[in-house]
Write a protein that binds this DNA or RNA. Structure first.
Lengths: 205, 205
DNA sequence: CGCTATAGACCGACCGGTCGGTTTTCTGAC
DNA sequence: GTCAGAAAACCGACCGGTCGGTCTATAGCG
């Protein structure tokens, strides 16, 4: 990487890191640009060199969170040393651990920002929908594998089930944020892995 | 009711109606007081006679939505002419119809506002938790009845299941707001009533 | 009349964004 | 390698507008 690219990414990245943390905590409209800039240590003129508006910045924060989450999910869901069900469990346990450590992860941040800014722009809308589609597709693939191996109950259509799992996770994430503890995520894990996905006759190991 | 009380409630109620609609659409921080006042046709001095701050107003909006939702749920979940499962189905179908008609209902509005204002005050927090506890208790009671009648699968603990249903509904509500259609709520219905709650051997009618 | 409720001008703070100036980096000519 | 000019990136004072809240005056009511 050339020096100017390093400089460019450094400032921009610092902004995105600060935006991710502050928008996650205070919301998009609840946190002014000034605060983001202070935390990132970037003056206003620099900000507008990189992003044409706060809204474009918000889209970039969402896209970054999405891509990071996908990068995290991919190796976990693709780990062929484990069975499909184990891969799913590992992935959700990692997500739970992320939430326990920092209070939120991309799957919590993105819908939160989307709800708040949903009436603003098509860019936000498109970025969020893209995230959901990718998450859903990845989950559905692993679910299908598990069903084919008789490890996961075939009662539910895999695509439908993937959507349901994401919705349930989002609901649990809301409760976590409201309750300020991760009990809801534990409920999610228990429900999904101990009963919902359980194949009649499969071992729980 | 005395005339001044009518007068008092009229202005206050107009504010709460406007707040419910605008906060639901634009969020708490995304919608300024001026806009609420314009829609309600209430001058600023009057607003501050009834509410000491925007935050207190937000809490009142949440509490009103919660109580209205409970008032709506109660007769549906308590209708003994129907079986427990049918009562649940009717209630969620009514909620779905509310969302289809107006874009949201209390169960969508409350977590949305809670996420946005969660770092603000204990009052919001307390009001939201109270809502969840009441919804959950009501659902759990009906689920338990259905399980006792072998109408609803006993695989899941009723209290746990009530929490899961609420989380799943919240997740579906988020998707609805993001996708701008109610397909996610239909997925919720299909999943919950056609598979999840179905008692092995029970008729679907 | 006294109290409640309304009315709206006003306040300082904060908002997102603008814009002229400065510094740093890059590029091509010599 | 040096240098001059251009481009990229940084810098922060400034802007008009909006924000939530204050406060004095007035209207309405019993």
């Amino acid at each position: 990487m050339s020096p100017e690219a390093t400089r460019d990414l450094d400032t921009r990245e610092r902004l995105l890191v600060a935006g991710t943390e502050l928008f996650g905590r205070k919301g998009f409209n609840g946190c002014g640009l000034t605060e983001v800039l202070q935390q990132a240590g970037v003056p206003k003129g620099s900000f507008y060199h990189h992003f044409s508006s706060k809204e474009e910045f918000g889209v970039a924060v969402i896209e970054r969170a999405r891509d990071q989450h996908l990068d995290e999910m991919r190796p976990l869901l693709g780990d062929r040393r484990l069975s499909p069900l184990q891969r799913l469990r590992t992935m959700f346990e990692q997500a739970r651990a992320d939430c326990a450590a920092s209070g939120a992860n991309a799957e919590c941040l993105i819908p939160k920002l989307a709800l708040e800014t949903g009436s603003l722009s098509e860019s936000v809308h498109a970025a969020v929908k893209c995230a959901y589609q990718q998450w859903s597709a990845m989950l559905a693939q692993v679910l299908r594998e598990g069903q084919n191996l008789h490890e996961i109950d075939r009662k539910h259509d895999a695509d439908h089930l993937a959507n349901v799992l994401i919705m349930l996770w989002e609901g649990a994430a809301i409760r976590m944020q409201i309750d300020r503890n991760i009990a809801a995520l534990d409920d999610f894990q228990t429900f999904v892995f101990d009963t919902l996905l359980r194949h009649p006759g499969a071992q729980s190991s």
